[in-house]
Amino acid sequence: MENELKYETVKHAILNQIHTGELHTGDKLPNEEDYMKLFNVSGITIRKALTELANEGYIVRIKRKGSFVNNPKITENQSHLIALILSAEDYYDSSYMKIIKGAQRMAAEFNYSLIVEWSNENLAIEQASIQKMLDRNVDGFLIYPFDPIKSIDNFKLIEQRNIPYVLVDRYNLNRPCYFAGCNNHDGAVLATRELIRLKHTKIKFAGYHFFLNSEQERYDGYCSAMRHAGLPVNDDNLLTSINYDSLAESILRHDITALFCSNDKLAVKVMKQLHERGIRIPQDVSIMGFDDWDNSRDLPVALSTVKQVFEEIGINAANLLINAILGKIQGGNTKVLSGVSLVMRDSTSENPYS
């Protein structure tokens, strides 16, 4: 009975600090050792008090980081569930698995569970997935949309419920949002500068889904690096619909010596198509990708590319969402970009015609 009274004394003392405003949302609580000295009780007593406060939603306990005050306005109806809606073209793409892994890892640190819903490229299926998760009373959404412009009405379903959501990898440039992705612009600058360093001046940019802001940002980075090097940039530099016969002829005429593809998927397709037309890589043309797929190094000609860390993007997305759920950030217009790096392999070489 005495131990029960001790842990309740600790619990009510912390609750009083929260209710009176002495402790605010997001504040970190003192560590267990400090509370043991303050209340002259054992560590077991402190842990029991903190566990009950966490179970009742007043605080959030994060492994290796400590305990933090939760938002009292939202704790009553919290489900501690987060939905990840993936509108994906290829369910077997390892990059999606890495995003999921990162998001799950971060969610678990905040005692949240992640529910994954696949909706391919169909807006109606995406909408049904969102409604299904709304019916489960999830606390927030991570959304990897196929086309964030066309998905606006689906996003409005979430906004009407005043539930936070974070877009992953792609967003609508004209619509404020929480977003987690990679630094597309700077990654493209790195790639283009490397091709220029290899004495390539006739470099084209090949798009895959150019309606996406991620590809447009990569193209902007390519253009920036080209202009900085004093190289011309015009509409002919951008390839959005590739005629591979014409492309092969341009390469054989040395009108194109390097191709920067907006992602590895396109780069792999380009390499295959050119190989079938007798074009040698990198002897006739250098190829650069973006993403660093798991199999990029295992191709017949290993692909040079820009590496983005997909698991880190998942971690950033879940962290951003949970901070929005807890009321630590507001306004719906925060973007977190993960870093990128250059990975040079066999598909690029110095321009032999320079």
Score class of each variant (00 low, 15 high):
269 K>Y: 08
269 K>A: 10
269 K>L: 13
275 H>D: 12
276 E>P: 00
279 I>C: 10
279 I>S: 08
279 I>Y: 06
280 R>L: 14
280 R>Y: 11
281 I>G: 02
282 P>F: 08
284 D>H: 15
285 V>L: 11
286 S>I: 08
286 S>T: 10
287 I>S: 04
289 G>F: 07
293 W>C: 04
295 N>V: 15
295 N>L: 14
301 V>C: 12
301 V>R: 06
304 S>W: 01
306 V>W: 01
307 K>M: 08
308 Q>F: 06
308 Q>N: 12
308 Q>K: 13
309 V>S: 11
310 F>W: 06
310 F>K: 15
311 E>C: 07
311 E>R: 11
312 E>I: 09
312 E>H: 11
313 I>N: 00
313 I>D: 00
315 I>W: 05
318 A>P: 02
319 N>R: 13
321 L>A: 07
323 N>W: 00
324 A>M: 03
328 K>D: 05
330 Q>P: 00
330 Q>R: 06
331 G>E: 02
331 G>Y: 01
331 G>A: 03
332 G>E: 00
333 N>Y: 01
335 K>T: 03
335 K>F: 09
337 L>A: 08
340 V>E: 01
341 S>H: 05
342 L>V: 04
344 M>E: 10
345 R>P: 06
346 D>E: 15
347 S>F: 06
348 T>Q: 02
348 T>L: 05
349 S>M: 14
350 E>H: 05
352 P>N: 08
352 P>R: 09
